[in-house]
Design a protein around this nucleic acid. Structure first.
Length: 580
RNA sequence: GCGCUCGUAGUGAAGUUGGCCUAUCACGCCUCCCUGUCACGGAGGAGAUCGCCGGUUCGAAUCCGGUCGGGCGCGCCA
């Protein structure tokens, strides 16, 4: 007889059914035993009467999480015995036969308890953790999201192409995972950090619109929003596209659809703003601003050029953020924010509070009446508010206030979990200053087109080089970078020049990117694209702050799979065969 | 690599200004009782060298040093 799922039992009243699943709980009344049987659709109650000797004996030895199969009659529950808390609460199955398909030892974690085990144990016993309704939900929703994405992409005539997992180590970017080659001793494959070069070669190969839900591999330390080892990207590329706006407009509807129809959230605005990188840094102190709240950075350098307050006078830049109701912050809380500011490089954290029409602050006595008036006017402060200052190098001020902006928003709960705020950050600098190595280096990836084409690359001084913009864009969702893309460079001359400005000769470029350069000689169409970090986007859509919560089998923060014990040692024979 | 932080029965927590700690509670587990429960109930029971090593002390879960492991952040992530 066919297995009936818990969710279908309601339609089988007064019929005999077979149900299978896990024992969620057993309630033994001595002469009568109830079992809550769980399958992937829900829970149904089994009743075992002592008259059924065989079944009753089985029921007595059953424990939580045993795997069982029951045959019985679906019966409407008597009046007053219904359980409104479960979907099948109006019926129960009167068991005739009960089979223990598999026993279970006492579980090392209690998946169905309010007390959630710590993450390390949950990861070690992930197969038990996955039985939790929340994890079941996550995996199903992730599959649904992938389905929405595939439908959309196919509707736009994108072709899904899978690209090699065994690829080449690439010199730029993240650390690679290396795979020793057996057939070619001493040589290595690498797992791709992204299918970047392959997708550009697909453009040369005449694929008009490419996409792939691609596994990407990076050997870099993880974060709460960044998985160790492997993660998935919606990787896309379009040929005969010469401007980033075409790409951005292609994907605006998909991300909106995922935010609203899929995740059931509200968009902060239908129009998705395009914000130049410099503007984002100056207004929000970040290239991935959370736009669900305001608190923009206010420029005050001019106000304090001739101030008596030395800290402000000597600073390259003075900016501030206005914290509404900031006077509610305790001294201790302000100390906490001061520590955060210091951790970002600030010397301290000056502030002014407004109470009863007066500016109260340890620094107020250093400020003139005109300065105080200008402050109030520029920030819009009113009673109850507090202004927090950053005074330092411009980059430090932006970094410190950008961090504080986010921290204050957390404190005052300004990040509405039901709202999605999207924006595109555009016009990234092509190069940036590497302070550690004291030289100009690539800001993003070297494969994008400089804005203004090859002429834009006529730069000799560091200053001129740093002023070059890349046709490069990131999409930001609620303060998370969820997408990065660019108009690609399909012209070998430009690629040589892009590297040349950093002092790399043509030989270097040919050594590193030979295949792509070669391909570009034979008719490469202009092309542009982007890649969405789908795990991170999914995390935010699901209101999770830890990306491991939305993945079936994540590695922990040390890159270890504590369930499978990987990485692990291998046989000497295996190593020998690989020549290592 | 660095900074902050956490580590107490199977699980989650309390205890951490040294001593009534012979370590408390809840869940789980075991035994027995119970024919309408659904977080079943009742009676009883087992289970912890307080991550590990060392030190201070008459006395350490508690203080100090080291070490291991987890989490968060920085570096890193073209």
């Amino acid at each position: 007889m066919e297995r009936t799922l818990s969710s279908d039992v309601l339609q089988k009243q007064d019929e005999t059914v077979v149900v299978s699943g896990w024992v969620q709980s057993r309630r033994d009344h001595g002469g009568l035993i109830f079992i809550d049987l769980r399958d992937h659709k829900g829970i149904v109650q089994l009743v075992i009467n002592p008259e059924k000797n065989e079944a009753f004996a089985r029921a007595e030895e059953i424990r939580d999480e045993f795997v069982v199969r029951a045959v019985g009659l679906v019966r409407k529950r008597q009046e007053g015995l219904e359980n409104p808390n479960i979907e099948t609460g109006s019926i129960e199955i009167v068991v005739n036969g009960l089979t223990i398909l598999n026993r279970a030892e006492t579980l090392p974690i209690q998946p169905f308890s309010e007390n959630q085990a710590n993450e390390e144990l949950r990861l070690k016993y992930r197969y038990l953790d996955l039985r939790r309704p929340k994890m079941q939900h996550m995996l199903k929703r992730r599959a649904e999201m992938f389905s929405v994405i595939r439908n959309y992409m196919e509707g736009q005539e994108f072709t899904e192409v899978t690209t090699p997992i065994l690829a080449n180590s690439s010199p730029e970017g993240a650390r690679d995972f290396l795979i020793p080659s057996r057939l070619h001793e001493g040589k290595f494959y690498a797992l791709p950090q992204a299918p970047q070069q392959f997708k550009q070669l697909l453009m040369v190969g005449g694929i008009s619109r490419y996409y792939q839900l691609a596994a990407c591999f990076r050997d870099e330390d993880p974060r709460a929003d960044r998985l160790y080892g492997e993660f998935y990207q919606l990787d896309t590329e379009m040929s005969f596209v010469e401007d980033g706006e075409t790409v951005r407009q292609m994907f605006d509807p998909l991300i909106k659809k995922l935010s609203t129809e899929f995740a059931g959230k509200t968009l902060l605005s239908e129009d998705i703003p395009r914000i130049p990188y410099v503007e984002a840094i100056e207004k929000y102190g970040s290239d991935k601003p959370d736009l669900r709240f305001g608190m923009e950075l206010v420029e005050l350098t001019d106000v304090f050029t001739d101030t008596e307050f030395a800290v402000f006078k000597n600073a390259e830049t003075v900016k501030a953020i206005l914290v509404k109701n900031g006077t509610l912050l305790s001294r201790k809380q302000i100390d906490g924010f001061t520590e955060i500011a210091k951790s970002e490089g600030a010397g301290g954290l000056a502030y002014i509070s407004y109470e009863n029409g007066e500016a109260k602050s340890p620094i107020a006595k250093f400020l003139s009446g005109t300065e105080l008036a200008a402050l109030k006017e520029k920030t819009g402060a009113t009673d109850g508010d507090t202004i927090f200052f950053g005074a330092d190098k411009r980059s430090t001020v932006n970094k410190v206030l950008g961090r504080l902006r986010s921290e204050f928003a957390d404190h005052f709960e300004l990040k509405d979990p039901n709202v999605i705020a999207l924006c595109w950050i555009v016009d990234f600098p092509f190069y940036e200053w590497d302070d550690a190595r004291k030289k100009v280096d690539f800001g993003h990836n070297p494969f994008s087109m400089p804005k203004g084409g090859v002429e834009a690359l006529n730069a000799s001084t560091d200053e001129e080089k740093l002023a070059i913009l890349a046709d490069q864009y990131d999409m930001v969702m609620n303060g998370y970078e969820i997408c990065s893309g660019g108009v690609r460079n399909h012209n070998p001359e430009v690629l040589y020049k892009v590297f040349g400005l950093l002092g790399y000769d043509e030989q270097y470029v040919e050594d590193k990117f030979g295949a792509m350069l070669n391909a570009f000689k034979y008719g490469a169409p202009p092309h542009a694209g982007c890649a969405f970090g789908v795990d991170r986007m999914f995390m935010e859509l699901m209101n999770e702050s830890n990306i491991r919560e939305v993945i079936a089998f994540p590695k922990n923060g040390s890159g270890v799979d504590v369930m499978m014990n990987s990485p692990s040692m291998v046989d000497e024979a295996q190593k020998k065969e690989l020549g290592i």
